[in-house]
Design a protein around this nucleic acid. Sequence first.
DNA 1: TCAATACTGAACCGGAGGTACAGTACCGCA
DNA 2: TGCGGTACTGTACCTCCGGTTCAGTATTGA
Lengths: 204, 204
Amino acid sequence: MARGSETRTKILDVAQAAILTKGFDATSIDEIVAAAEITKSGFFYHFRDKNALAHALIERHIEIEDKLFDALFDRARELGDDPLQTMLIGLKLLAELLDMPGGHPGCIVATAAYQDRLFDRKVRDANARAVLGWRRRFRSMLEAIAQVYPMQDDVDLNHLADMVSAVIEGGLIMSRALGESSITSQQVLLMRSYLKILFSPGIQ
Amino acid sequence: MARGSETRTKILDVAQAAILTKGFDATSIDEIVAAAEITKSGFFYHFRDKNALAHALIERHIEIEDKLFDALFDRARELGDDPLQTMLIGLKLLAELLDMPGGHPGCIVATAAYQDRLFDRKVRDANARAVLGWRRRFRSMLEAIAQVYPMQDDVDLNHLADMVSAVIEGGLIMSRALGESSITSQQVLLMRSYLKILFSPGIQ
DNA sequence: TCAATACTGAACCGGAGGTACAGTACCGCA
DNA sequence: TGCGGTACTGTACCTCCGGTTCAGTATTGA
């Protein structure tokens, strides 16, 4: 039991690292196998095919990220005593988290989104679920804010929730394209600025 | 002359369509060759390898998109008589453009960004140039606005310029992941809302 | 009509995903 | 102590794809 799941975890770890830097296709099974110090047969014992690996990777990613976000915004709630403050603090914490040396590795979800046909329905569904999870999370926080503060501009809360994800995903793409690792966290801080002035009452 | 460039264009056209829906790797040369109604040798007559195709695709994409943006913001300048209005109108026109039935196909630049190691330096450089081009474009527009209007929140204009690109790229990812084609244009409209209240003087 | 341009056709290679299956090391349990 | 399941290893093999090579050929402008 323990032995098997250890190997499985090791495969997922090395696969994730490789895929995020090189892309899904560019990462060969032989390569993963070598890095995980197992054989090809060992790989196919744990995963039926490369698609199953992608699926497991996304599922795990969702889970880990969800816990991380939970912890981060729980911490923000501790520090702030009002929905808007909590959100602003949370985004600042998130920006700090994303501003790591070497840059955040990237997002598995985005990788999957741009290599659509490579994956089967299960992978795409898992991907969509992840994005909807983000939407729900931020949406509920925004609703709490909107109940207390008037909006300076009438915008849809679902769209606004999506914007948090969008600037992160977009930021990751741009930071990859330019090799500027700080872009993603800068974009999160701009999202924070938008929410700040969107919900700031009256004059600045 | 005309004959050769026609074939080349046809190759680029079918390749672009396939790559945007399936990803770069998932699109085989054999497939492109079949769709373009030529032979494999014909393909390699025009492009040294798949990398050369990617490079040509990105170069062409930059050129076309640049002209499209030029035209769009020229039109916006005709309609608005002040830098902020021009920007807001431009973003609205952009949102309308992105809100096409079936959804915008996606961005070649993002495709390349997430399949980094697959491409050589020339492709990555072209990709970075495209992103920097967007930054310069939006940066100059924002500077003109900032000279006339005070900012409600002190943010960096480069970052703000990048945010326009980021919400588009992020929006495209999300719309692909969820199959909701309208997301990208919604995100552009939110960016518009941000700029509107960021540069709106005093009370709403 | 000649030579460059723009291809076709066919054969071939290496690497990647994937299959099949026999053998084996470990490990808890009766 | 041994039995059986779990977790692999090793080997051999198949197909498809990107890419190469090269000889041959149709089209076309000077």
